[in-house]
Computed example of a mutant assay.
Amino acid sequence: MMSNKRIAAVIAAACIGSAATAQGILTAETAAPNTTPGISIISLSEAASKAGIADIQVTAGQTLTNSVQNVAEGKTDIAAAPFILPFLMSRGVGPYAGLGAEAGADLADNLAVLYTYRVSVQGLFVYDSANISGWDGLEGKTIYNGPPRGAALTNARLLTKTVTGLEEGTGYTGVQVNWGQAVKTIQDGSADAFVLPQAFPDPRITAALASGDITVFSMPKDVHEGEAFQKIAKLPGTVRFSMPVAEMGYGDGVTVVSEDDTFRGPATVGGDVVNVNMDFDTAKALTTAFIENIETIYHAKASFMPVTWHGETDPEVTDMCGTNPMKYHPGAVAAWEEAGYTLPDCAK
């Protein structure tokens, strides 16, 4: 059986066609191919080939912490990047503590954005058979909260503490498993509950329904509007998110619990990033290909893609500016502005 990496590479190769029709070869790293970041870069490979810009060799199923560092170091051309990662890198903390502040800041300066999107919305879900009534039922439980290293794990721990006050290791037991084993881990009983990134509808939840009905819990409204969460929403790459339950796209087998038929949570935003040394024309051409194919390629790839904020430039949604250290690549700025969009000066 082929690995997720190999499957993604085959998908990308099928999408981009022959190198004879393109001007060069680029490399890209992203998350699992059925996630927003995974689909985003696979779609970019198709759009770039269609425009004759480049063949993009995509490696999917990666831990984005490593992928972002690879782009900063010039080892990879493009990567999906939740914006919390460049921020942590710029300070040499969290998963980048081994770099130190000075080296981390230097590396973070090497990153530039082509375009942005909502990576996911962090949230809680459980099998109905687990008999967990919501966030208040997590004490002493085992929670699968992401891969061993990355933004998802950091965000899950922070969200759980904000809503429940519980710390991993004392209030609950955390389980970390790489994304390639996510659905298997959800189904095999390794954890009682799951605090994971979600799309709407979420493919991991849909796949896991084979093992039983699932309930998704909104973040409580009072916590979402409270002071502690307002501080979280000011972190780079995090914005407040709400959506009517009726628009989440779930069918039979999934129940969404909310006080007022509105799902709430922290949205993780990011984008596809390149090294600042990518030449102007290539960055511009890639961004133009993205803009021209948002609806025809990106939105057509999965049922959740039309609502992932591809094509948005408002900093209230993109989180470009503020404490986020990221800027658009000059070539990307030119592409956006030629297409009639307005970018905030603080993001250029």
Rank of each mutant, 00 (worst) to 15 (best):
R149I: 14
V317S: 07
N66T: 12
K184Q: 14
N70F: 06
A334M: 06
F229M: 14
P197G: 14
V58L: 00
L114H: 03
F125G: 01
G189H: 05
N155C: 11
T287M: 02
C15H: 13
T313R: 07
L64S: 01
R204I: 04
V333M: 10
G174A: 14
A228E: 11
P148C: 10
A28G: 15
A193E: 03
A105L: 01
T65M: 06
Y172H: 06
E225T: 14
A60K: 00
A80Y: 05
L88K: 13
E227V: 11
R264G: 06
D213V: 00
Q62V: 04
G140Y: 12
D281F: 08
A246E: 15
D272T: 11
A48E: 02
N131S: 15
L44Q: 09
G146I: 06
R157V: 06
T154S: 13
A267I: 05
P82E: 06
T287Y: 06
P330W: 08
Q187K: 15
E73I: 00
A267E: 05
I132N: 10
Y144I: 04
N275C: 02
A199R: 11
K75S: 11
P220C: 09
L114T: 05
A20L: 12
D55Q: 12
D319V: 07
S190R: 15
G52D: 03
A13L: 07
E225R: 11
I39Y: 12
V71R: 04
A31F: 15
S258W: 07
S49A: 15
S43V: 02
K301T: 08
A47Y: 03
A79E: 05
M320C: 07
H224Y: 15
E168H: 09
T116G: 01
E167D: 15
Y250L: 02
P344H: 06
V58F: 05
Y144E: 08
I291V: 12
D222M: 07
L153K: 15
S218M: 05
S67T: 01
A332N: 01
P330Q: 06
T170R: 11
T30V: 10
E73K: 14
A101C: 00
S303Q: 13
Q230H: 01
V183N: 13
V121M: 06
I16E: 11
I214W: 10
Q181L: 14
N293R: 05
V257P: 00
V257A: 13
K348I: 00
E46A: 08
V121D: 05
E316Q: 14
L343C: 07
N34S: 10
L111D: 02
D314P: 00
V119M: 09
A302R: 09
A246I: 04
D188S: 10
I41L: 15
N293V: 02
G146C: 09
A54D: 02
G92A: 11
A130D: 11
A22R: 10
A246T: 13
D281R: 09
A19S: 12
Q57V: 08
W179C: 00
T313A: 11
V163Y: 04
E337K: 08
Y172T: 02
S258G: 06
E225Y: 01
D202V: 04
L158N: 10
K5A: 14
T173I: 06
Q187W: 04
G92C: 10
G174Q: 07
L159H: 04
M89P: 08
G180P: 03
Y328L: 03
K141A: 12
D319G: 03
S3T: 15
